[in-house]
Design a protein around this nucleic acid. Structure first.
Lengths: 216, 216
DNA sequence: CAGGGTTTTCGTCTTATAATCGAAAACGTG
DNA sequence: CACGTTTTCGATTATAAGACGAAAACCCTG
């Protein structure tokens, strides 16, 4: 069991990795994870494993990704991994163990086993779900300006998105709502931005993405 | 490892099940599957398992569904299952072993373990992908009329879809193409329908379902 | 404190895609 | 050969997203 844990920081998508101290693949970077314990579901188990690395309360979303089972993915013995996608909001800054650090997914260090492939799968899942769900809630702070949200989406998707369009699409879907508060504008002036929040912190799928609808 | 294998027959979505001869859950109906062998990926393994039940060449689509790991999902010993969705075209009629049969998903017999939950997960995955992929190719025969395709989609989705709209949506996406052939009209007359086929037999995702597109 | 630069916000227009409607085409049957 | 039936296709409407620009609301400088 492994988890690709992602967050946005410094306008980049980052992954949580720890550096191996022993063979195989000494000094290379690994995804957090561990073995399934008795009486646990895989979801509960991966949350327990991750609790050793980050504060569990920061973990805003966890979902199954895929099973990775190439026979030689771990040299020597057979290891089948159930991989997860985990998300952490960009305002959280959990204290990490010595051997653990965040790395931009765009410039990964030398990774162990097939962990880079798993990370890329995690990134693709995140990108897809940003399109047709409200999963942004798991990356964003509790309250944010539209410009901040645009930067989060841009970093995760890998291209600039329009703040105007982002605002309107998410609002139309009922995923976003204004808090009524505004924050003072920055040193370069400009209109003071309004603060927004996600209406729900549970994953919800846009109904508009279901085509071939039932007759009305 | 288990697979929910689905097909359309008699305007209904059916699942492949075999009846258990021994405890636990004797006489109840189970999903096909088996244990992972050495040197196999889970995908290759589930195809090998299914080959004992149906002709592998009929299996037009296989994909991972989810890992099911509730501690007591199998009474007594701990069994973690990697579940798959498998699809078979409606024109195929593989000869089945004695203990194996097709059952409508709408009226399942008594099932073993959590296999009903797995089947419902498989059905939901199929329904979702019918919306935004060309996965219909895995259920349909090589060539078909629009009316036949409408019946397939209707049975899988659980509600009547419009033949007109189905034709236009899939054609616009480039998923469907006319063969040029027509078949003679039925006993009640009517214009002879044209035969269509899917342009690709590989899973393709509609790009229109990706919202928040990159700037043009 | 007036003016210019900046950022945000919002209305409007355009484009893309799907759903609906109805007419025409092309066949069997009585 | 008129009639019912089914298919096919064009035209219209509906819905959602993208593009654009004007207005709002702030900061800073002279």
């Amino acid at each position: 069991m492994l988890a690709g844990v992602l967050r946005i920081r410094d306008r980049a998508l980052q992954a949580l990795l720890w550096q191996r101290a022993r063979p195989p693949h000494t000094h290379r970077w690994s995804l957090p994870g561990g073995r399934l314990g008795p009486g646990e579901t895989v979801e509960r188990s991966i949350r327990r494993q991750l609790a050793e690395k980050v504060d569990v309360r920061e973990l805003t979303h966890v979902e199954q990704l895929s099973v990775f089972s190439a026979p030689e993915r771990v040299p020597g013995k057979r290891v089948v991994a159930t991989a997860f996608l985990g998300l952490i909001p960009c305002d959280a800054d959990p204290t990490l163990p010595e051997d653990t650090a965040w790395h931009p997914v765009e410039s990964l260090p030398a990774t162990a086993f097939d962990h880079e492939e798993i990370l890329l799968t995690a990134r693709e899942r995140l990108r897809a779900k940003l399109s047709y769900t409200n999963i942004g809630f798991a990356l964003a702070p509790p309250r944010f300006t539209v410009a901040e949200l645009r930067d989060i989406y841009s970093a995760a998707l890998g291209y600039r998105v329009s703040a105007t369009n982002l605002q309107r699409v998410l609002s139309r879907r009922g995923a976003l709502e204004a808090t009524g508060e505004t924050v003072s504008s920055g040193p370069s002036g400009g209109r003071p931005p309004a603060l927004f929040r996600f209406t729900s912190r549970d994953l919800q799928i846009t109904d508009a993405f279901a085509v071939l609808r039932p007759p009305s």
